[in-house]
Design a protein around this nucleic acid. Structure first.
Lengths: 229, 229
DNA sequence: GAGGTAACTTACTTGAAGTAAGGTGAACCA
DNA sequence: TGGTTCACCTTACTTCAAGTAAGTTACCTC
């Protein structure tokens, strides 16, 4: 037992480690039951370090959420690049989303199953910002291809998509007999016809999967920090 | 200042008061920041009473959620009775839902904005049970009128509806320029065509609002307690 | 009005969030 | 090679809220 004599680790690396451990423990015990002492211990350091780097327990959670959010945004954005049209773009995005939530199911529930708001306003804001980001992406997608629709309709439609995604991902993650593609297909079948007709009430066959528009290139807006202070 | 000398109050009445006060304070401060001492004080009693009646802070939250859940179920169920067909039934249910969330917006966010899971497994289960209840109601509605669809599709569709409702209600509650009816209309327009075609892929005009079926009478399953012990 | 019980209280323990103040090792300069 | 420095890290606290043990008091019943 040659007790490693506590190596000193540069800030960035230590921070990443702390985030990883915290994500794990939050997912394991829930935010309230998780203790900063335990997180510190499993990192092999002492508690004040956590406070030094993240300010508070909530701050630590916010950092976890933000990191996950960045990952998700990058993943889905990448998946959508080069889609053949709006339908294809939406489907690709959905598949990427469901794959992501499946791969990180434990820590995903940290956000989805609502571990967040408990922590306080900052964590709530962070989660809400993530949803809003998705809403904006959806709106951009819809309006790029279907410019006739009024803003209110776009927004409502985007909210519907985001809500449906969120719930369906939990359902999907809980079943082994459904693939990400199938989940996306389910959602597309329910949503697409309605979305199309609602957003663009022109002749019914104008848009039909493959479209005259060029390939879809999403807006990359990265993470828009709500309040970093 | 004739300090009312602390009237003694029967259990049922006191419990109701405690729930009301707790709902208020939870909504006001968030679950974590709310203190049992403050709740007790605002009730005009001392803390151990809360523990006597609800067992724990989480227990108190669970009681609040369950009460709200019962209200919601009763409200929507009542609204749907006597609908002219599946579309009408769904629309009525949605309108009732949005009205409900609007009327109780503060405490609703207690559930929706995720104040729940923070508390622990019991509160999470309670919220999830509420959603599942909605899912079951939707499934019953769909399958009663559209019996051709496989169970998996019904379930996926119901999840989509519940998720969309949840998100759209938050959106709707945050705006003064949208009525409950408009929110329901938005949702119906996005969902209904897809739902209809997905659930019953027969001739496209078989179902069209008014239907040959008799008026819709929902299953009243009340509150199905997850684990009361 | 005696007695029992449901409603209620005071006064504590426990445990985790957050903090003050100081130790230590590695990089860098002479 | 030795000293200086600063980022990394610790010990040892304070504070505050959840939860509890044990006892007290008003109301109801006979």
């Amino acid at each position: 037992m040659t007790e490693t004599p506590r190596r000193r680790v540069p800030r960035a690396e230590r921070e990443a480690q702390m985030r990883a451990v915290a994500e794990e423990i939050f997912a394991e015990r829930g935010f309230v039951a998780a203790s900063m002492d335990e997180i510190a211990e499993r990192c092999g350091i002492s508690k004040p370090m956590l406070y030094e780097y993240f300010g508070s327990k909530e701050g630590l959670l916010v950092a976890c959420i933000r990191a996950a959010r960045a990952d998700l945004a990058a993943t889905t954005t990448a998946a959508v690049v080069g889609a053949a049209g709006p339908e294809d773009a939406l489907r690709r995005g959905l598949v990427a989303f469901f794959r992501f939530t499946d791969a990180r199911r434990r820590s995903w529930s940290l956000v989805l199953r609502n571990e967040a708001a408990v922590a306080g306003p900052a964590a709530t804001a962070e989660v809400e910002a993530g949803r809003q980001q998705q809403v904006e992406i959806d709106i951009a997608l819809f309006s790029a291809f279907l410019p006739h629709a009024p803003r209110l309709d776009l927004e409502a439609a985007a909210q519907v998509v985001v809500g449906a995604c969120e719930r369906l991902s939990l359902w999907y993650v809980g079943r082994d007999d459904v693939t990400a593609e199938q989940a996306a297909d389910h959602l597309m079948r329910v949503l697409w016809t309605g979305l199309r007709s609602m957003l663009d009430p022109g002749p019914d066959d104008t848009v039909d999967g493959t479209v005259d528009s060029p390939t879809w290139t999403p807006v990359d807006r990265g993470i828009d920090a709500p309040t970093s202070g």
